[in-house]
Design a protein around this nucleic acid. Structure first.
Lengths: 129, 129
DNA sequence: TTTGGTTCGATAATGATTTTCAGTAAGGAG
DNA sequence: CTCCTTACTGAAAATCATTATCGAACCAAA
Protein backbone atom coordinates (compact mmCIF):
# COMPACT_ATOMS: atom_id res chain seq x y z
CA UNK A 1 0.00 0.00 0.00
CA UNK A 2 1.02 3.55 -0.54
CA UNK A 3 2.55 4.92 2.58
CA UNK A 4 3.93 8.42 3.04
CA UNK A 5 7.62 8.91 3.36
CA UNK A 6 9.17 11.65 5.37
CA UNK A 7 11.58 13.67 3.31
CA UNK A 8 13.64 16.70 4.20
CA UNK A 9 11.57 18.69 1.74
CA UNK A 10 8.34 17.95 3.52
CA UNK A 11 9.92 18.62 6.87
CA UNK A 12 11.30 21.90 5.59
CA UNK A 13 7.90 23.02 4.33
CA UNK A 14 6.28 22.08 7.62
CA UNK A 15 8.91 23.99 9.56
CA UNK A 16 8.79 27.04 7.34
CA UNK A 17 5.02 27.15 7.62
CA UNK A 18 5.18 26.57 11.34
CA UNK A 19 7.35 29.62 11.84
CA UNK A 20 4.54 31.85 10.68
CA UNK A 21 1.45 33.04 12.45
CA UNK A 22 -0.60 33.93 9.39
CA UNK A 23 -1.68 32.51 6.09
CA UNK A 24 0.81 32.38 3.24
CA UNK A 25 0.51 31.26 -0.37
CA UNK A 26 2.38 28.30 -1.79
CA UNK A 27 4.19 30.56 -4.23
CA UNK A 28 5.31 32.95 -1.55
CA UNK A 29 6.40 30.19 0.80
CA UNK A 30 8.42 28.59 -1.98
CA UNK A 31 10.01 31.90 -2.94
CA UNK A 32 11.11 32.54 0.62
CA UNK A 33 12.51 29.05 1.08
CA UNK A 34 14.53 29.39 -2.11
CA UNK A 35 15.68 32.84 -1.06
CA UNK A 36 16.78 31.30 2.23
CA UNK A 37 18.98 28.89 0.34
CA UNK A 38 16.80 25.78 0.32
CA UNK A 39 16.76 24.14 -3.07
CA UNK A 40 13.36 22.62 -3.72
CA UNK A 41 10.78 22.78 -6.44
CA UNK A 42 7.52 24.66 -6.46
CA UNK A 43 5.70 21.46 -7.30
CA UNK A 44 7.05 19.87 -4.17
CA UNK A 45 5.86 22.73 -2.01
CA UNK A 46 2.37 22.37 -3.44
CA UNK A 47 2.42 18.65 -2.79
CA UNK A 48 3.67 19.05 0.75
CA UNK A 49 1.04 21.66 1.54
CA UNK A 50 -1.73 19.58 0.01
CA UNK A 51 -0.63 16.61 2.09
CA UNK A 52 -0.68 18.71 5.23
CA UNK A 53 -4.19 19.94 4.51
CA UNK A 54 -5.39 16.40 3.92
CA UNK A 55 -3.85 15.18 7.12
CA UNK A 56 -5.35 18.08 9.03
CA UNK A 57 -2.04 19.66 9.91
CA UNK A 58 -2.82 22.81 7.98
CA UNK A 59 -5.77 24.90 6.87
CA UNK A 60 -6.25 26.14 3.32
CA UNK A 61 -8.09 29.35 2.57
CA UNK A 62 -8.93 30.43 -0.98
CA UNK A 63 -9.11 34.20 -1.18
CA UNK A 64 -11.17 36.31 -3.52
CA UNK A 65 -8.09 36.79 -5.71
CA UNK A 66 -8.08 33.08 -6.43
CA UNK A 67 -4.89 32.43 -4.53
CA UNK A 68 -4.91 29.72 -1.89
CA UNK A 69 -3.13 30.43 1.37
CA UNK A 70 -2.05 27.93 4.00
CA UNK A 71 -1.50 27.92 7.71
CA UNK A 72 -0.51 25.44 10.39
CA UNK A 73 -3.36 24.63 12.76
CA UNK A 74 -4.77 22.13 15.17
CA UNK A 75 -7.28 19.53 14.14
CA UNK A 76 -10.15 20.69 16.32
CA UNK A 77 -12.94 22.53 14.61
CA UNK A 78 -12.35 26.26 14.66
CA UNK A 79 -12.61 29.47 12.69
CA UNK A 80 -10.23 32.29 11.86
CA UNK A 81 -9.84 35.93 12.68
CA UNK A 82 -7.47 37.35 10.07
CA UNK A 83 -5.64 40.66 9.87
CA UNK A 84 -6.06 42.25 6.47
CA UNK A 85 -2.77 44.08 6.78
CA UNK A 86 -0.17 41.70 8.18
CA UNK A 87 -2.02 38.42 7.78
CA UNK A 88 -1.81 37.51 11.45
CA UNK A 89 -4.36 34.86 12.30
CA UNK A 90 -6.15 33.98 15.50
CA UNK A 91 -8.19 30.82 15.87
CA UNK A 92 -11.43 30.98 17.76
CA UNK A 93 -14.55 29.04 18.53
CA UNK A 94 -18.04 30.35 18.83
CA UNK A 95 -19.95 28.33 21.39
CA UNK A 96 -23.59 27.99 20.47
CA UNK A 97 -23.10 29.22 16.96
CA UNK A 98 -22.52 25.78 15.55
CA UNK A 99 -25.90 24.66 16.82
CA UNK A 100 -27.60 27.84 15.71
CA UNK A 101 -26.41 27.56 12.12
CA UNK A 102 -27.31 23.91 11.96
CA UNK A 103 -30.82 24.62 13.23
CA UNK A 104 -31.20 27.44 10.75
CA UNK A 105 -30.10 25.27 7.87
CA UNK A 106 -32.41 22.46 8.91
CA UNK A 107 -35.31 24.88 9.08
CA UNK A 108 -34.71 25.56 5.42
CA UNK A 109 -34.66 21.87 4.62
CA UNK A 110 -30.89 21.61 4.25
CA UNK A 111 -28.95 18.65 5.53
CA UNK A 112 -25.32 17.61 5.88
CA UNK A 113 -24.49 21.20 6.67
CA UNK A 114 -20.99 22.56 6.90
CA UNK A 115 -20.01 26.17 7.29
CA UNK A 116 -17.28 28.61 6.53
CA UNK A 117 -16.76 31.52 8.86
CA UNK A 118 -13.91 33.98 8.57
CA UNK A 119 -13.57 37.34 10.27
CA UNK A 120 -11.35 39.97 8.71
CA UNK A 121 -10.07 43.12 10.33
CA UNK A 122 -7.02 45.11 11.29
CA UNK A 123 -5.06 43.84 14.26
CA UNK A 124 -3.67 45.99 17.03
CA UNK A 125 -0.14 45.81 15.63
CA UNK A 126 -1.09 47.34 12.31
CA UNK A 127 -1.99 50.95 11.54
CA UNK A 128 -5.66 51.57 10.98
CA UNK A 129 -6.71 52.65 7.50
CA UNK B 1 -15.71 61.86 -15.49
CA UNK B 2 -16.29 58.27 -16.43
CA UNK B 3 -19.94 57.47 -16.35
CA UNK B 4 -21.54 54.12 -17.09
CA UNK B 5 -23.47 53.55 -20.26
CA UNK B 6 -26.37 51.18 -20.56
CA UNK B 7 -25.98 48.56 -23.26
CA UNK B 8 -28.14 45.64 -24.24
CA UNK B 9 -25.33 43.32 -23.24
CA UNK B 10 -25.29 44.53 -19.66
CA UNK B 11 -29.07 44.37 -19.49
CA UNK B 12 -29.00 40.84 -20.87
CA UNK B 13 -26.47 39.69 -18.28
CA UNK B 14 -28.48 41.26 -15.48
CA UNK B 15 -31.65 39.58 -16.68
CA UNK B 16 -30.03 36.20 -17.19
CA UNK B 17 -28.54 36.33 -13.73
CA UNK B 18 -31.81 37.51 -12.26
CA UNK B 19 -33.63 34.47 -13.58
CA UNK B 20 -31.59 32.21 -11.37
CA UNK B 21 -31.86 31.43 -7.69
CA UNK B 22 -28.33 30.19 -7.14
CA UNK B 23 -24.74 31.10 -7.81
CA UNK B 24 -23.39 30.65 -11.31
CA UNK B 25 -19.95 31.15 -12.80
CA UNK B 26 -19.21 33.74 -15.46
CA UNK B 27 -18.18 31.01 -17.88
CA UNK B 28 -21.36 29.03 -17.36
CA UNK B 29 -23.58 32.09 -17.63
CA UNK B 30 -21.88 33.07 -20.86
CA UNK B 31 -22.21 29.57 -22.28
CA UNK B 32 -25.93 29.49 -21.56
CA UNK B 33 -26.52 32.92 -23.03
CA UNK B 34 -24.71 31.93 -26.20
CA UNK B 35 -26.63 28.66 -26.32
CA UNK B 36 -29.82 30.69 -26.00
CA UNK B 37 -28.87 32.61 -29.09
CA UNK B 38 -27.44 35.79 -27.58
CA UNK B 39 -24.22 36.83 -29.29
CA UNK B 40 -21.91 38.40 -26.75
CA UNK B 41 -18.35 37.88 -25.67
CA UNK B 42 -17.06 36.19 -22.58
CA UNK B 43 -15.08 39.31 -21.77
CA UNK B 44 -18.25 41.33 -21.73
CA UNK B 45 -19.94 38.95 -19.33
CA UNK B 46 -17.00 39.24 -16.95
CA UNK B 47 -17.13 43.01 -17.16
CA UNK B 48 -20.88 43.17 -16.63
CA UNK B 49 -20.69 40.89 -13.60
CA UNK B 50 -17.81 42.82 -12.10
CA UNK B 51 -19.76 46.04 -12.51
CA UNK B 52 -22.76 44.52 -10.80
CA UNK B 53 -20.68 43.37 -7.87
CA UNK B 54 -19.17 46.84 -7.53
CA UNK B 55 -22.54 48.49 -7.60
CA UNK B 56 -23.88 46.03 -5.05
CA UNK B 57 -26.38 44.44 -7.39
CA UNK B 58 -24.72 41.05 -7.15
CA UNK B 59 -22.65 38.96 -4.80
CA UNK B 60 -19.45 37.21 -5.79
CA UNK B 61 -18.29 34.04 -4.13
CA UNK B 62 -14.91 32.47 -4.85
CA UNK B 63 -14.99 28.76 -4.28
CA UNK B 64 -12.13 26.49 -3.27
CA UNK B 65 -11.77 25.45 -6.90
CA UNK B 66 -10.77 28.99 -7.76
CA UNK B 67 -13.89 29.69 -9.78
CA UNK B 68 -15.90 32.77 -8.91
CA UNK B 69 -19.67 32.49 -8.91
CA UNK B 70 -22.18 35.31 -8.98
CA UNK B 71 -25.71 35.87 -7.81
CA UNK B 72 -28.23 38.69 -7.79
CA UNK B 73 -28.92 39.99 -4.31
CA UNK B 74 -30.24 42.84 -2.28
CA UNK B 75 -28.00 45.43 -0.76
CA UNK B 76 -28.83 44.68 2.86
CA UNK B 77 -26.25 42.76 4.81
CA UNK B 78 -26.92 39.05 4.69
CA UNK B 79 -25.32 35.64 4.42
CA UNK B 80 -25.89 32.58 2.26
CA UNK B 81 -27.10 29.06 2.69
CA UNK B 82 -26.01 27.18 -0.40
CA UNK B 83 -26.94 23.78 -1.76
CA UNK B 84 -23.86 21.80 -2.72
CA UNK B 85 -25.78 19.82 -5.32
CA UNK B 86 -28.02 22.19 -7.24
CA UNK B 87 -26.56 25.51 -6.16
CA UNK B 88 -29.83 26.86 -4.81
CA UNK B 89 -29.20 29.74 -2.45
CA UNK B 90 -31.12 31.12 0.48
CA UNK B 91 -30.24 34.42 2.09
CA UNK B 92 -30.47 34.70 5.82
CA UNK B 93 -29.57 36.90 8.73
CA UNK B 94 -28.35 35.83 12.09
CA UNK B 95 -29.60 38.27 14.70
CA UNK B 96 -27.11 38.66 17.49
CA UNK B 97 -24.32 37.01 15.62
CA UNK B 98 -23.11 40.24 14.07
CA UNK B 99 -22.63 41.74 17.51
CA UNK B 100 -21.06 38.57 18.86
CA UNK B 101 -18.42 38.39 16.15
CA UNK B 102 -17.63 42.06 16.45
CA UNK B 103 -17.19 41.75 20.20
CA UNK B 104 -14.99 38.72 19.74
CA UNK B 105 -12.81 40.49 17.21
CA UNK B 106 -12.51 43.56 19.38
CA UNK B 107 -11.47 41.41 22.32
CA UNK B 108 -8.54 40.28 20.22
CA UNK B 109 -7.64 43.86 19.35
CA UNK B 110 -9.00 43.78 15.84
CA UNK B 111 -10.85 46.72 14.33
CA UNK B 112 -12.75 47.48 11.15
CA UNK B 113 -14.05 43.96 11.21
CA UNK B 114 -15.93 42.35 8.37
CA UNK B 115 -16.95 38.74 8.14
CA UNK B 116 -17.68 36.03 5.67
CA UNK B 117 -20.21 33.38 6.60
CA UNK B 118 -21.44 30.73 4.25
CA UNK B 119 -23.36 27.59 5.08
CA UNK B 120 -23.21 24.65 2.71
CA UNK B 121 -25.49 21.65 2.66
CA UNK B 122 -27.90 19.62 0.60
CA UNK B 123 -31.32 21.12 0.07
CA UNK B 124 -34.60 19.25 0.32
CA UNK B 125 -34.97 19.05 -3.46
CA UNK B 126 -31.72 17.18 -3.93
CA UNK B 127 -30.94 13.56 -3.05
CA UNK B 128 -28.81 13.10 0.02
CA UNK B 129 -25.38 11.61 -0.48
C1' DT C 1 23.91 -3.85 -5.19
C1' DT C 2 19.69 -5.03 -7.27
C1' DT C 3 14.75 -4.46 -6.92
C1' DG C 4 10.43 -2.09 -6.45
C1' DG C 5 8.40 1.34 -5.05
C1' DT C 6 7.91 6.58 -3.74
C1' DT C 7 9.28 11.30 -4.33
C1' DC C 8 11.50 15.14 -6.83
C1' DG C 9 11.35 18.81 -9.85
C1' DA C 10 11.94 21.02 -14.50
C1' DT C 11 8.74 21.76 -17.87
C1' DA C 12 4.44 21.61 -20.31
C1' DA C 13 -0.39 21.90 -19.88
C1' DT C 14 -4.65 23.66 -17.94
C1' DG C 15 -8.18 26.82 -17.01
C1' DA C 16 -10.14 30.94 -15.14
C1' DT C 17 -9.60 35.73 -15.48
C1' DT C 18 -7.45 39.98 -17.43
C1' DT C 19 -5.40 42.84 -20.79
C1' DT C 20 -4.95 44.59 -25.54
C1' DC C 21 -6.54 47.23 -29.02
C1' DA C 22 -9.09 48.25 -33.06
C1' DG C 23 -13.75 48.67 -34.33
C1' DT C 24 -18.65 49.87 -32.57
C1' DA C 25 -22.12 52.56 -30.63
C1' DA C 26 -24.22 55.31 -26.46
C1' DG C 27 -25.78 59.89 -25.62
C1' DG C 28 -24.98 64.71 -25.19
C1' DA C 29 -24.01 68.92 -27.99
C1' DG C 30 -25.15 71.63 -31.76
C1' DC D 1 -31.24 64.62 -36.84
C1' DT D 2 -26.05 64.56 -37.21
C1' DC D 3 -21.63 64.89 -35.22
C1' DC D 4 -18.44 64.12 -31.89
C1' DT D 5 -16.34 62.22 -27.75
C1' DT D 6 -15.42 58.40 -25.34
C1' DA D 7 -17.09 54.28 -23.07
C1' DC D 8 -18.05 49.62 -24.62
C1' DT D 9 -17.38 45.37 -27.14
C1' DG D 10 -15.07 41.16 -28.16
C1' DA D 11 -11.52 38.14 -30.47
C1' DA D 12 -7.22 36.99 -29.46
C1' DA D 13 -3.11 37.15 -26.66
C1' DA D 14 -1.30 37.51 -22.06
C1' DT D 15 -1.37 36.35 -16.96
C1' DC D 16 -1.02 33.51 -13.21
C1' DA D 17 -1.91 30.05 -9.85
C1' DT D 18 -2.19 25.29 -9.87
C1' DT D 19 -1.86 20.55 -11.88
C1' DA D 20 -0.17 16.91 -14.85
C1' DT D 21 3.91 14.62 -17.05
C1' DC D 22 7.58 11.72 -16.76
C1' DG D 23 12.38 10.59 -16.41
C1' DA D 24 15.84 10.97 -12.67
C1' DA D 25 16.85 10.55 -7.83
C1' DC D 26 16.15 8.17 -3.59
C1' DC D 27 14.94 4.86 0.13
C1' DA D 28 14.33 0.52 2.33
C1' DA D 29 15.20 -4.02 2.23
C1' DA D 30 16.30 -8.56 0.23
Amino acid sequence: MTQKRSTWQKVAVREELGERSGFISAQQLHAEMVAAGQKLGLTTVYRALTDMVESGEADALTGSDGETRYRICGQEHHHHLICNVCGKTVEFELPGFEAATKALALSHGFQEVSHSIELFGTCSDCPRG
